[in-house]
Amino acid sequence: MPPAEAAPLLAVRELAVHIPDPPHLLRAVDGISFDLDRGETLGLVGESGSGKTMTAMALMRLLEPPLSRLPTGEVLLDGEDLMRLPEGAMAALRGHRLSMVFQEPMTSLNPVMRIGAQIAEPLRRHLGLFRAEAAARAEEMLRLVGLPDPARQARAWPHELSGGMRQRAMIAIALACRPALLIADEPTTALDVTVQAQILELLRELQRDMGTAVLLITHDLAVVEENAHRVAVMYAGRIVETGPVEAIFTAPRHPYTAGLLASLPRIREEPEPWLPEIPGMVPGAGDRPRGCAFAPRCTRVISGCVAEAPPLLGEPHAAACWNPLHD
């Protein structure tokens, strides 16, 4: 047994969300496992429909009925399996030990509640602070996330703030109770590029100061490269490659990761006349092939690929491929 300190903050084991949709079984998330250490950022990357958001919702146990009963596997936060907790105990953890920032800052704030009150809410609920203390902490959080004149912003209504300011406010709400884990689901996708950079910078700073672990969900590889320590690439509900950022960006082993990286526009002396793309489309969650889900689009396909799905092998850089690159 390793000592307790070596145990990761978050350990996800064989998490799956299989949605029965007769005659199919939609494998939205298909048995994924990963660890996240304290203060670490894991970038979860993938195309639309690869199961990233479903993974986040399953981790937070936020899926609505009838989906709420479907997730299987283990989600260990500090050794405690969130999947086995009663709903009341889970609600007590949400916003307190683990928190979430959503994609759409324009619609994620309650339009009829002042910003300060929305930040104070989790503080009062989880930490039992009284109104005045919570209001003071809310202003402090607004200052931390870099909003000018926090006292005034605390009294503002959501519609009085710009998108970037709202996302800062959302981050203030999510981090108000200093959670150990923050799940950020496409936190900057809805924002302008310049604002995007500022928000990511802010997340990095806060993470460093508070020691929060971040699960950064995005389809944007550039965001991951600059902000994550490790990467997990999802394809069709599974993790196909995972490892440290440098390893994956310099020497991807899975052809899908390699394809994604090749299709990333780079500033070069001699730009290529066209941007490479991966042919074909992600298979639907209902008609996954029996073998590797990427095989129909893969240029390196060999005979074994269609027979059996490859296991995720390698440490710390793992790839689920029968014929990996850079071997």
């Binding site: 936020l62 916003g95 959503f102 994620s108 339009p111 509640m113 609920r125 709400i173």
Partner: peptide
């Protein structure tokens, strides 16, 4: 989204109904 966000912050169903939904 703000209802999902409220749930992600640990709000109970009663709280969501009275604090988030009713005023809106």
């Amino acid at each position: 989204d703000f209802i999902a966000a409220a749930r992600a912050l640990g709000a109970s169903p009663a709280r969501i109904m009275l604090r988030e939904l009713l005023p809106n």
